[in-house]
Design a protein around this nucleic acid. Structure first.
Length: 315
DNA sequence: GTCGGGTTCCGCCAAG
DNA sequence: CGCTTGGCGGAACCCG
């Protein structure tokens, strides 16, 4: 009779297909009927399974994803029209969007947008002050930068010299972690992902860390992270692993070298400082960190290198 | 896997 | 002028 382990993997595969489809087609009309067909379940059965699997109903998840995408777009592009953002994330009217946004984030879309704009203008001014005082670092009072984004390690080389690259689509196998970003990610690599890629003889393939959510917007316990490795087209996933295709297309690529505590702030800087000034806008394809291949002593001393890749499209 | 009913929330019109 | 809020009918969702 059927193996229960197989059953769980089959459910995971179907649920994952739906979640993937939602992220890639956020702007389209996605109702229960359509998504349940993708999952190969009947609508009503699917609804229950999804809620049990994800900890929120399909409707709640879909609305949350749309609002979070919108929040990212608004925070990064201060001149984007609210209505355009609403349509881009799949709301069919600006009114419904404004209401849902306020209910979720506690403020109107426009206030969120201008608030972020003001915060980051302020941040840029403080940063210029810091650079002006670089010959006399003692004059920078401790606590002047209270926000976590300012905790750059001097060892860190992060110059934001960004190039726009056209990356090819890549077949990947990945292990997903849902939970707070930060130290838990490093632990996840060491204890779960690295053993898995070694078992599968994949340690010399390009690898990727895919952060699907912005931790300043998505609740920490809902943040999704994929540790991924490039695989052949005919690769069959083993264990908890899933396969997917990393979409090709335009990415803003920037090299990072530094401590694990600085990678988060580097992402923030890219999104909130570089992106608004770039003439590009964030696209809904996933963003990721790219590593040429696994190196055993990669994180020795806490210093590592990677390329930060942000999916973009012209304004 | 299916059905039905209560409820929420969307989408349109209008005004602030 | 674009965005937000309020009212309202109806569709979609949610859950027993």
């Amino acid at each position: 009779m059927p193996n229960p382990q197989r059953g769980i993997q089959e459910y995971a595969k179907r649920m994952n297909a739906v979640v993937n489809h939602i992220d890639l087609h956020l702007a389209e009309a996605l109702d229960l009927d359509k998504l349940s067909r993708i999952a190969h379940f009947s609508p009503y059965h699917f609804h229950r399974l999804f809620a049990a699997w994800m900890g929120e109903t399909l409707g709640e998840y879909l609305r949350r994803r749309r609002l979070e995408q919108a929040a990212i777009m608004l925070a990064g592009q201060s001149r984007l029209a609210v209505l355009d953002v609403a349509l881009a994330v799949g709301f069919a009217s600006g009114e419904a969007f404004a209401r849902a946004f306020k209910a979720h984030f506690g403020c109107a879309p426009r206030d969120w947008q201008s608030g972020h704009d003001a915060r980051w203008r302020n941040y840029l001014q403080l940063r210029q002050k810091l650079f002006a005082q670089v010959s006399n670092p003692d004059q920078v009072r401790p606590g002047e930068f209270s926000d976590h984004v300012d905790s750059f390690n001097p060892e860190t080389e992060f110059k934001m010299d960004v190039t726009i690259q056209h990356l090819p689509a890549t077949k990947i196998a990945f292990l997903r972690k849902v939970g707070p970003y930060g130290p838990a990610i490093a632990e996840f690599w060491q204890q779960t992902f690295v053993p898995w890629i070694k078992e599968n003889q994949l340690q010399y393939q390009p690898i990727f860390g895919i952060g699907h959510d912005d931790p300043s917007i998505t609740p920490p316990e809902k943040c999704r992270y994929d540790a991924a490795v490039a695989v052949p087209d005919d690769f069959v996933a083993t264990g908890q692993a899933m396969t997917a295709t990393l979409p090709g297309g335009k990415y803003a690529v920037c090299h990072f070298k530094g401590g694990v505590q600085d990678i988060g702030p580097a992402w923030m800087k890219m999104f909130r400082v570089w992106l608004p000034e770039s003439g590009m806008q964030y696209d809904t394809r996933p963003c990721f960190e790219a590593y040429p291949a696994w190196i055993d002593d990669k994180s020795s001393g806490g210093i590592f290198e990677c390329d930060i890749c942000i999916s973009v499209k012209p304004l």
